[in-house]
Design a protein around this nucleic acid. Structure first.
Length: 419
RNA sequence: GGAGAGAUGGCUGAGUGGUUGAAAGCACCGGUCUUGAAAACCGGCAAAGGGGCAACUCUUUCCUGGGUUCGAAUCCCAGUCUCUCCGCCA
């Protein structure tokens, strides 16, 4: 959410900045509402002051007048509230302003590759897809999932279940012990207000799974990413400067409706309604966002280096960034069966955008109250890491070599095969 | 599910109708003292919003929403959340 006070300084450049995202807002409407809102506030404050003075004077002859004033205040107040609601509604649907570092562009085709790492494996046979491999091993079962649950779910079984767990634990351990993140095991349900804080609501309600509770107006949602719940740890707080930066990591299931992606990635476990992800979240002083973004992205790519998986680092263009982000790096891992790179991590700085929504602040050395910077990144998506390992480490006979770094997490298992 | 207690500033906590935005303590910041630190002492320290180039100033806020009153942290009603006890259950 944007701070209206900041927008007010220069409405036109605000509008222009949003055009980078190919978003066109009715700036005159915004300007107008803001003006009206402030007019009402001024009127109201004038009357309130008058009323306050009467009550202080304790002059009985003025009591009737005070009563009258109360009525006019009420009237103005309800008008002002309508305008304010309108204003909030518009503001809460406007995405973050892209940072100048983000290349201008329309969609994913305009993203820019920054670097490539790792060796793309060469096969003397036609590499199989992860679902062919997994099904042949009897360790990925999509049919069973559609029987018990529906499409876009999967049963991971046996040694692949162990592998999934190993991936998750390895990533957690690395981020906790080497990268200084605090481990969190959070709730998987989030309140409406929490979902608003990180920007999932109100605009993206269709992507969220809402859980029915008995009470009508108490809405809960399955988290689409741990970002939601980890970032909101600092909702409604003024953080002690000394405790910054805060760094949290969690491995959680994530739930997404994937409403807009019918027919996309229908095969396999690339795009599921439920998947595990290790998520990194940082809360920092607002001027340290970009610095932290580099650090966080390195934490993510470091995992791929350790797993010896080939990847490339992309910077997202203005048109492809998420709602709350000012700057985003995507890490894409090589998938032999598709002969291309696929997203496995996305690291974003949200500047003070989420903090404004969550009311997360800190006091700097000069005692000014400032909104914090928030960042989030996958470190990494566990399901897709599993896919990448299956495909990149596959052997001709359909067995899978276990990456060295994971073996300690799997009773030193070196190879996953049928027997 | 049954019974009770509570919600006040960054934290602890006083305050039951009229300069109370709110005592006190802690924390924090600045200073004195000290070789340095601690202690002690002195001073400062809520947020949001409005007006103003600024100095500054005004309004709101004691869980939320209504109500009573000239006036509400304080009284009434509804709701939310938290805690304790009992029951049930992982």
């Amino acid at each position: 959410m944007h701070n209206l006070k900041e927008i007010r300084k220069d409405f036109d450049s605000f509008k222009k900045a949003l055009e980078k995202r190919t978003i066109d807002i009715d700036i005159d409407k915004l300007k107008n509402l803001d003006l009206k809102n402030r007019e009402f506030i001024q009127k109201k404050e004038l009357l309130e002051k008058e009323k306050k003075e009467i009550s202080k004077s304790k002059d009985k002859s003025l009591f009737a007048k005070s009563k009258e004033i109360s009525l006019s205040i009420e009237k103005i107040d309800s008008q002002q509230k309508l305008v304010k609601d309108d204003l909030d509604k518009i503001l809460s649907n406007i995405p973050n302003i892209p940072h100048d570092d983000a290349p201008i562009g329309k969609d994913e085709n305009d993203n820019i590759e920054l670097k490539k790492n790792g060796k793309i494996p060469k096969f003397d046979f036609k590499p199989k897809s992860h679902y062919e491999l997994g099904e042949k091993l009897n360790m990925l079962d999509f049919d069973l999932a559609s029987k018990t649950t529906g499409s876009r779910f999967v049963f991971v079984k046996n040694k692949l279940a162990l592998l999934e767990r190993a991936i998750s634990n390895f990533m957690l351990d690395t981020h906790i012990n080497k990268n200084g993140y605090e481990e969190i095991s959070p709730p998987l349900l989030a309140s409406e207000n929490t979902m608003f804080g990180t920007g999932q609501l109100p605009k993206f309600e269709n992507d969220q799974f809402e859980v029915k509770l008995d009470k009508e107006n108490d809405r809960k949602f399955l988290i689409p990413t741990a970002e939601v719940i980890l970032t909101n740890i600092v909702k409604d707080t003024i953080i002690d400067l000394k405790s910054l930066p805060l760094r949290f990591v969690a491995s959680t299931p994530c739930f997404r409706k994937e409403a807009g992606s019918y027919g996309k990635d229908t095969k396999g476990m690339i795009r599921q309604h439920q998947f595990y992800k290790v998520e990194l979240v940082s809360i920092v002083e607002q001027n340290k966002c970009l610095e932290e973004l580099e650090r966080m992205t390195n934490c993510a790519t470091n995992i791929l280096d350790l797993l010896e998986l080939p990847y490339r680092k992309m910077i997202l263009c203005t048109g492809d960034m998420g709602f709350s982000a000012e700057k985003t790096y995507d890490i894409e891992v090589w998938l032999p069966s598709e002969n291309r790179y696929r997203e496995i991590s996305s690291c974003s700085s949200c500047s003070t955008f989420q903090a404004n929504r969550m009311k997360t602040r800190y006091k700097n050395q000069a005692k000014e109250t400032l909104y914090a910077g928030t960042l989030n990144g996958s470190g990494l998506a566990v399901g897709r890491t599993l896919i990448a390992i299956l495909e990149n480490y596959q052997q001709k006979d359909g067995s899978i070599i276990v990456p060295k770094i994971l073996r300690p997490y799997m009773n030193n298992l070196e190879k996953i095969s049928l027997n």
